[in-house]
Design a protein around this nucleic acid. Structure first.
Lengths: 218, 218
DNA sequence: ATCTGGAATATACGTTGGTATAGATGGGGA
DNA sequence: TCCCCATCTATACCAACGTATATTCCAGAT
């Protein structure tokens, strides 16, 4: 949200491509280069994993049918590994069941060859925009966790009880310390968490709580 | 969340079916009746809309290909009308593009005939569960809006500023009333909104704010 | 052994929040 | 007209919050 956002420039976005067909990779690289997109292409999921993700907004164009691990299986494995880049599937021989499974598991697009170049470019730009937003959110969450981790254990205790709405004297009894200590810790919490009001602190705490990824209904 | 939840019994859930083929409707009715599901079947989207939704957890089994309005168009129209029932598509002659569009617009399943009965039943139960959860959430939100609407205009003003973290004296200056009045209103707000602590009130206010439907990324 | 920094605690003081009581105002309805 | 009720306001009082200052204690460094 603040100025400390060195990776939200569209020019630095990266499009990853995983396709076992060299000619497809070349064609896609040409297409994406023609619209000033940075491309990193891989012939297998293993090669992609070994390379790792650069710290930049990105999306992934993934072939379904590949020797070894299929694109669908790899999508699931990425979820297991905590890799959250938006996925666009492309396939020459897909069926409805594949596409439904892919979309259920969070793919943002599923294109069958031959597809119109513009459809792929639209999907890529949408994916990059989604990833930029996700990165902004997770970056803000990480900043809050950093502030939280700088609190002493006692300060964390006090913050936890303060945002539950307990009075200082109740917190003191709960923690077995004096009310004065609670007041001092509370002041430290407000300062360290950069909360100007109690309302701020409560909203910060709720954002820290609701950190476990929500978009997994099913 | 509370005991006032008269519509969350699985037995009262309703499965709506829209399919122009009488024999398909009959077959589905038989299937669903065999597992104790309540069914309301319609031969067209118009007939469904005229009937309206019963106030109960539900899901909708929707044929894609129908004379007049297609299932996909009807899905979009329902979104426009604010009808939020989970949709399961079935089709005999679908393609990948259809299925991808349906899933992008929020369908929870897309089955091609012939499908296994169990797959449909699984999807229906999942849809009903999703709808029950959605109803619980929107019911709680409606309850909060009801409490909010019972506040006097002045009390709503005070609540809005209180949850922004302003001091009573600041609120008084902002509204052009005395600090005493702010204190009285504030007490009324806490009582009427059933908030025992300021933390409660802030969370209630945030739930009222974040009421505009979130699940529409694109 | 001595020094040092952090944490907990106590005292004191001022500010803010919250409620009770009572008076003033003002707009429908009997 | 008079009454009723809601709202605003003032006074008074107490609880809760927050900060400054000083003291004690203790672990780790010198």
């Amino acid at each position: 949200m603040t100025a400390a956002n060195p990776a939200c420039d569209n020019k630095k976005a990266i499009v990853y491509i995983i396709d076992d067909d060299q000619s497809v990779r070349d064609a896609l690289e040409d297409l994406l280069a023609s619209v000033d997109l940075n491309v990193k292409a891989f012939g297998s999921t293993q090669a992609f994993l070994e390379h790792g993700l650069v710290e930049a907004p990105a999306c992934l164009v993934l072939d379904i049918r590949m020797p070894g691990q299929s694109g669908l299986d790899f999508q699931r494995e990425m979820a297991r590994l905590g890799i959250e880049v938006p996925v666009i599937f492309i396939t020459g021989h897909g069926d409805i069941e594949m596409s439904v499974r892919a979309m259920k598991e969070g793919a943002i697009e599923f294109l069958t060859k031959p597809f119109r170049d513009q459809d792929l470019l639209d999907a890529i730009h949408r994916g990059i925009r989604i990833d930029m937003q996700r990165r902004a959110e997770t970056g803000a969450a990480a900043q809050l966790r950093r502030l939280w981790s700088d609190l002493s254990p006692g300060e964390q205790d006090v913050m936890r009880l303060v945002v539950q709405g307990l009075l200082n004297k109740q917190i003191a009894a709960e923690l077995g310390v004096s009310e004065i200590t609670v007041k001092v810790r509370r002041g430290q919490v407000m300062r360290k968490m950069q909360a100007k009001t109690l309302a701020d602190l409560i909203r910060i705490a709720d954002r820290l709580e609701g950190d476990t990824k929500p978009p997994l209904s099913g």
